[in-house]
């Protein structure tokens, strides 16, 4: 029963695919099925839409999301009406997706459902809070393409990553790109003093002065630093960026003659919009990147088959990835972990 016990140690989990068709729904179905035999109350939703039987882009067959008795799920009204299971409606929230209000229900007889839940990180946090009264032990978010915000530790405490041939059909490239993402997820936490200092700062770019007090570096965000003439690193060895960290900003900092030992802090890995080249260059020149909040990456799942039909060797892929990322890697479909206990 791979990684299910690890999941049960957390109250929230997001499943994030690095690309469409990387086996995210297979992975979710695997987790849901295994959890159905555990004594824990589970609620599941999706950021964006998921669970459709045919991929809307590639027209390839997709596994539908299967829920079993006792599970809770939240989806848009329109998809609730077309569900293929028996469920008891327990809540209608004021949250709205493009497909209508989000409703929450408890499964009475298992079956399939299309999930289309809250569409932003903040609405996901509200969704989680709304489940408190049902005594849910584990909330699972099925992350959609390009919506990595669901994996933010502000939303979910643990995550499972899915990758595969759809992300890159070249084994070396796939391994390298996945390893880089895992490295970003695993960026270490900043010192607790700095974490407490910056955790409530939601705007701007900040440093610390010699006395350790917060210092406004006068930069609105890493996107608007063109007009800044002073070297921020000269003013502060610790730089906190409340929003996104971009390649240009990172390169600008890496160019500083005083970059060695400097520490750039972001809220969490979902705020990193940096290429591997810029990231490595920054580290090579002596800079460090830290985060205020960190998710626990529990496992990586792979789908060796690309929508184009190209298939990578599953065993080789799993082995190579495990060697590189030092984490368990699973091909859920091939190994049919779902066999009975």
């Amino acid at each position: 029963m791979p990684f299910i016990r690890d999941i049960l140690e957390y109250d929230s989990l997001s499943i994030v695919g690095l690309e469409k068709n990387t086996g995210k729904t297979e992975c979710l179905n695997y987790i849901l099925r295994r959890l159905s035999s555990q004594k824990c109350k589970v609620a599941v939703t999706s950021i964006g839409m998921d669970g459709e039987s045919t991929d809307q882009v590639t027209r390839t067959a997709k596994p539908e999301i299967h829920l079993t008795e006792g599970m809770y799920f939240s989806t848009a009204e329109i998809h609730y009406r077309s569900r293929n299971l028996l469920s008891e409606l327990v809540d209608i929230t004021d949250e709205r997706s493009s497909l209508g209000r989000i409703v929450t229900a408890k499964v009475l007889i298992g079956g399939n459902v299309l999930l289309s839940g809250p569409s932003s990180g903040t609405s996901l946090i509200r969704w989680m809070k709304s489940l408190d009264r049902f005594g849910i032990d584990l909330k699972i978010i099925d992350g959609a393409l390009s919506r990595i915000s669901s994996a933010s530790p502000a939303v979910s405490r643990a995550m499972v990553l899915s990758t595969g041939a759809a992300y890159s059909a070249n084994l070396d490239t796939l391994v390298r790109k996945t390893r880089f993402m895992v490295e970003l997820i695993d960026i270490p936490l900043a010192d607790s003093v700095l974490r407490n200092r910056f955790i409530n700062v939601e705007r701007g770019v900040w440093g610390t002065d010699k006395e350790g007090r917060m210092l406004d570096l006068g930069i609105a965000s890493s996107l608007t630093m063109d007009g800044i003439k002073d070297d921020p690193v000269k003013r502060s060895k610790v730089i906190y960026i409340s929003g996104a960290l971009t390649d240009r900003f990172l390169q600008r900092l890496a160019d500083s003659p005083e970059i060695k030992g400097a520490e750039v802090i972001v809220r969490d890995f979902t705020k990193l919009f940096v290429s591997e080249t810029a990231y490595r260059m920054f580290l090579k020149r002596g800079g460090q990147i830290k985060v205020l909040q960190k998710s626990k990456l529990i496992a990586v799942c792979v789908n060796p088959t690309a929508p184009s039909g190209y298939v990578l060797d599953s065993e080789v892929l799993c082995r190579r990835l495990e060697q590189e990322i030092k984490l368990p890697v699973y091909d859920i479909v091939k190994n049919k972990y779902d066999l009975c206990c």
């Binding site: 179905n29 099925r33 079993t68 293929n84 007889i109 298992g110 399939n112």
Partner: peptide
């Protein structure tokens, strides 16, 4: 086993 079931089960 329900309205539908996953392929594995």
């Amino acid at each position: 086993g329900g309205y539908t079931q996953t392929e594995f089960a």
